[in-house]
């Protein structure tokens, strides 16, 4: 079995080391690799697009992830009730999340088409003014966040699994003690599923920092760089401008940011994540 493991680690570890080396080079694939020390990082510090893409990505992540978790959790709680035909509803809520992203992005571009799109028809029917949506630098990120909310089915099912692990007896006991519905959710359900919330939070943040396909297909980063997300900029640096060293530097900075966030969350986790069978510190 060892060869499999070796191959497996060579596939991840080797390239990572290689990429770490590339950070200090200038390389356009066809030109020879040139050692330039930390010049890539000095260039990054003065690169307005780098700062812009970082801002856009942070904006997206910090709005999209909490909203996604809230929507997914609410949906999961409703679909955990003894409602007739709940299996059917769960399936319908899940379907958007398996829709191939290329197809769904193209579909959303059509829906948010400023001239003939469905979105403007809806907005007009309610009596609000028409919008440019993805062509509006102010609106493009909120529209992307909205699109991401359509696909929270995955997180919802994870929450559902967590909710079904909450012992019925605890909730009944609280009910007998006269706890209101809100108190039961706040003091029993939420603490009991906090590990699942934590899991979804970590995975959600890692995923959102790497958002790519939506912006690449829908706007190409526009209008006026308002949807230039970090990985999109990385992709452009590497495969359109062929700046491999620069792209590697971008990749490692993203890596550092994501790791920092993940560690930070693990740091604070014991304040609010409750694992059954362990004592709170």
């Amino acid at each position: 079995m060892a060869p499999w493991l070796l191959g497996f680690f060579a596939w991840t570890l080797g390239p990572m080391v290689f990429s770490a080396g590339l950070v200090f080079t200038e390389w356009e694939l066809l030109t020879p690799i040139r050692w330039i020390g930390t010049a890539n990082f000095t260039a990054l510090a003065g690169d307005g697009l780098f700062a812009r893409s970082l801002y856009n990505t942070a904006y997206f992540t910090f709005l999209a992830v909490p909203l996604q978790l809230t929507v997914a959790l609410l949906a999961a709680m409703v679909l955990n009730l003894p409602i007739r035909g709940v299996g059917f509803y769960r399936a319908v809520f899940y379907v958007p999340s398996i829709t191939p992203q290329v197809a769904s992005v193209i579909l959303w571009v059509w829906i948010f088409n400023p001239e003939y799109g469905l979105a403007n028809a809806v907005v007009q029917a309610v009596g609000l003014p028409r919008q440019l949506w993805m062509l509006d630098p102010e609106l493009v990120k909120p529209v992307f966040i909205f699109m991401s909310l359509w696909g929270v089915g995955n997180q919802m099912v994870i929450f559902l699994a967590g909710l079904q692990g909450v012992p019925e007896s605890l909730i009944e006991a609280a009910q007998l003690d006269g706890a209101s519905a809100w108190q039961r959710v706040r003091h029993i359900t939420l603490p009991m599923i906090s590990p699942v919330i934590f899991f979804n939070l970590i995975i959600g943040i890692i995923g959102s920092f790497q958002v790519f396909t939506t912006a690449f297909l829908a706007t190409g980063g526009g209008p006026n760089y308002a949807s230039l997300f970090y990985v999109l900029y990385l992709y452009q640096s590497a495969f359109q401008f062929l700046r491999m060293g620069y792209a590697s530097a971008l990749a490692w900075i993203l890596f550092a940011i994501i790791m920092a966030f993940t560690l930070l969350q693990f740091r604070f986790a014991d304040r609010w994540v409750y694992y059954e069978g362990t004592l709170r510190r």
Binding site: M16, M244, L254
Partner: peptide, 23 residues
């Protein structure tokens, strides 16, 4: 090694994008 394996799940795949392409 199992811990290493689990932590690679949290690795952003983007870091290895360029080296993989080069390979």
């Amino acid at each position: 090694w199992f811990t290493v394996l689990i932590s690679t799940m949290m690795l952003p795949g983007i870091v290895t994008l360029v080296p993989h392409y080069v390979i």
